[in-house]
Design a protein around this nucleic acid. Structure first.
Lengths: 218, 218
DNA sequence: ACCTGAACACCGTTCAAGT
DNA sequence: ACCTGAACACCGTTCAAGT
């Protein structure tokens, strides 16, 4: 796409992404028509297609936004003096800042990512970046003697990344409040994985199951 | 739906599900039209709608099949004398029997499940069943002194379930061969989580990253 | 009951035409 | 360049009609 005014272009694309995100959270990706996004963004189909070449490309924009967020969450790990504390802080920060909207949107995006080959490749690269950052931090902590040696940092980073992904998926299934309930157990699991010789005094907390609550969809 | 011949009905539904699964794996759920499924199953739209009321209901049928499979995988845990060995065997069995087709289909299904409220409720129930079976087995192993006490069985079951889900999600992203490469690390993680006092002699294996290979889509 | 295929309302995307 | 809205090919689903 050509553009004469980069600022206008960026702002317009951000507005479309925001409008689309609102629609996707309300109705789901495929139940949302381009007409819906047009209405929410206040423009005609022709205009929308001037900024995004297709519906998946809007998702790609959201994935890119999420990648930036994940980068910010993981950045402190690179220089943290205490890895486990930093990981727990990252987890807590994630749990504290995530909203129902984020989780639903993330689930919608994850769904589409697994379906679309180009989006999947984009997600693969992001996933590998994430694992690499984590692995680097783990290798440093091993070298300094902070955590147990004798396991491959890349393998452990993949395990931890998978654990977090899996718990977020479950959170998408059960609702945000389940993230908070899972947090102590997740932190405990992290410590056990990285520092298996030491047992924390704090036992894993039971998880409040709660009734099958429906989310509010205004 | 009314039916006069239950056997014919069951066989017809199974044939439709199989035809749909082939299409979904080849083209993805939403890129597959009902016309495609009709052609693969060799019937007209009217006939297909006689057996399944909607496209999501076909997915619901696949989810039900997966639930039965998961039940079979978890059944041995209920009576296993050695929980960790049984868990490792279950993980190995899963990794050994899963094909690229299964993973892609599972990803397609998971995507749709998160989108559709009814499918999500169905998945919630399945997830809770799975966690309950696992939690029960963990509680037994704690009582017998096989694994460490002091953590909530339900919380640990959720963590382990999340870990497996997350790794399968990554496998869907990277391809089946990544499951095999992850297996030793996953088993190690399992032992660390449940028996943190003991360190296995076997170190976590490095994971072969490999190039960004494309899957064969015939 | 089981099956057909035309028909309905709607979808994502394009494009001639304006400014 | 930026924007409009009618138009195109196609979608999931229904239903009158057959056996």
């Amino acid at each position: 796409m050509r553009t004469r005014n980069p600022d206008h272009n960026t702002a317009r694309r951000a507005a479309i992404i925001e409008a689309a995100a609102v629609c996707f959270v309300e109705r789901g990706f495929h139940a949302t028509s381009m007409k819906d996004v047009c209405a929410a963004a206040g423009m005609s189909p022709g205009t929308l297609y001037h900024y995004f070449r297709s519906k998946p490309e809007i998702i790609a924009g959201i994935v890119e936004d999420e990648r930036r967020q994940m980068h910010q969450v993981l950045a402190p790990l690179a220089t943290a003096p205490d890895l486990i504390a930093a990981l727990e802080a990252a987890l807590e920060g994630l749990a504290g800042s995530l909203t129902d909207r984020d989780l639903i949107l993330h689930a919608e995006v994850a769904a589409e990512v697994l379906r679309d080959p180009q989006l999947r490749e984009q997600a693969r690269i992001t996933e590998r970046e994430t694992v690499a950052v984590l692995a680097e931090a783990i290798a440093r902590a091993q070298a300094s003697g902070e955590i147990a040696p004798g396991f491959d940092p890349g393998a452990m980073a993949t395990i931890i990344g998978g654990l977090v992904d899996g718990l977020l998926m479950r959170a998408a299934l059960e609702g945000v409040q389940s993230v908070a309930a899972l947090l102590p157990a997740a932190k405990q699991a992290l410590a056990r994985l990285l520092r298996p010789g030491e047992q924390s005094a704090l036992a894993l907390q039971p998880i409040a199951a709660g009734p099958a609550d429906e989310r509010t969809m205004p």
